[in-house]
């Protein structure tokens, strides 16, 4: 499975990735004013027009001041809640890794948005024919053996693209080689069942705006509990209802017969 490893210690906040994403995916610019977030951040957040966003985090840890850049985009979860949620497979986890979207199937129910723990899928609220929009890991590039646009342009190899297992080894290796410069955690290795976009950082991940409360279990396990019993419940209901109605109606009929007999 293909994946991306994003190393905040390497990222220089140049935003080449942010622009390349728009360029490759032909996304329009947003109208912004001054800066919408800390530092030079623009726009305010991911949106249907912005699939990846660099955040500028000014962090004071003890007496050391640090400016650390984070990258927001779809995590391409191994077991994506969005794809579990989607009633019609408009969101699909491909075996190669990317979680992709098929507009021609989509109902626009936005359940994927509710389900995604990372708040990634975005909806075109301003369109009469709206779509769900999000980073799709540039599937046409990946299919052609290329890396995603953002990884391709990354100036400092802060984004590396490759086999997920290799990347995890690479990440572990980086932490081992420079243990003082890294938080000893690969964000996305285990979160919500593992993701195909993983992050390394030199500051606690929550400082970069990552949700560190997410458990390792995939979210779809939560709904599976409710979905698994469906056939059993159906069978049980079928049997019970039939039986009950048989018994009850029989009794009523008997009673009525009784009445008739009594009357006669």
């Amino acid at each position: 499975m293909k994946a991306m490893l994003i190393d905040a210690t390497r990222c220089i906040g140049c935003r080449a990735c942010q622009v390349a994403c728009k360029e490759w995916n032909e996304l329009p610019a947003e109208k912004t004013e001054f800066f919408a977030g800390k530092g030079y951040q623009n726009p305010r957040d991911l949106s249907s027009k912005t699939w990846t966003l660099i955040t500028y985090n000014e962090i004071q840890i003890e007496d050391r001041f640090d400016w650390v850049f984070g990258k927001k985009q779809c995590f391409h979860c191994n077991e994506p809640a969005c794809a579990t949620a989607c009633p019609v497979h408009a969101l699909e986890k491909t075996p190669e890794g990317p979680v992709i979207y098929h507009a021609d199937l989509c109902l626009g129910c936005r359940y994927c948005q509710l389900a995604c723990p990372f708040l990634v899928p975005r909806f075109e609220w301003d369109k009469a024919i709206p779509e769900i929009r999000k980073c799709n890991m540039c599937p046409s590039r990946v299919a052609a053996g290329e890396e995603p646009a953002c990884a391709k342009v990354c100036t400092t190899d802060a984004i590396v693209f490759g086999e997920r297992d290799d990347l995890i080894m690479d990440a572990e290796d980086r932490i081992r080689r420079d243990p003082r410069n890294y938080v000893h955690h690969i964000y996305g290795k285990d979160e919500v069942g593992g993701t195909c976009v993983m992050h390394l950082s030199n500051v606690p991940f929550e400082e970069l705006g990552f949700d560190t409360s997410l458990a390792a279990k995939a979210l779809n396990k939560k709904s599976e509990v409710a979905m698994k019993p469906v056939p059993f419940v159906l069978a049980g209901l079928g049997l019970t209802l039939g039986a009950v109605s048989w018994i009850v109606n029989r009794r009523i009929e008997n009673q009525q017969n009784q009445k008739v007999e009594d009357a006669s």
């Binding site: 794809a83 579990t84 949620a85 989607c86 009633p87 019609v88 497979h89 408009a90 021609d104 199937l105 989509c106 109902l107 626009g108 129910c109 936005r110 359940y111 909806f123 075109e124 024919i129 709206p130 779509e131 769900i132 779809n220 709904s223 599976e224 409710a226 979905m227």
Partner: peptide, 19 residues
């Protein structure tokens, strides 16, 4: 958002989805 696609649910099945 895209109600005209509602019928798609008849042919495109995702039984894992509560929806």
């Amino acid at each position: 958002g895209r109600p005209w696609n509602l019928w798609i649910a008849i042919i495109s099945w995702n039984h894992a989805s509560p929806m």
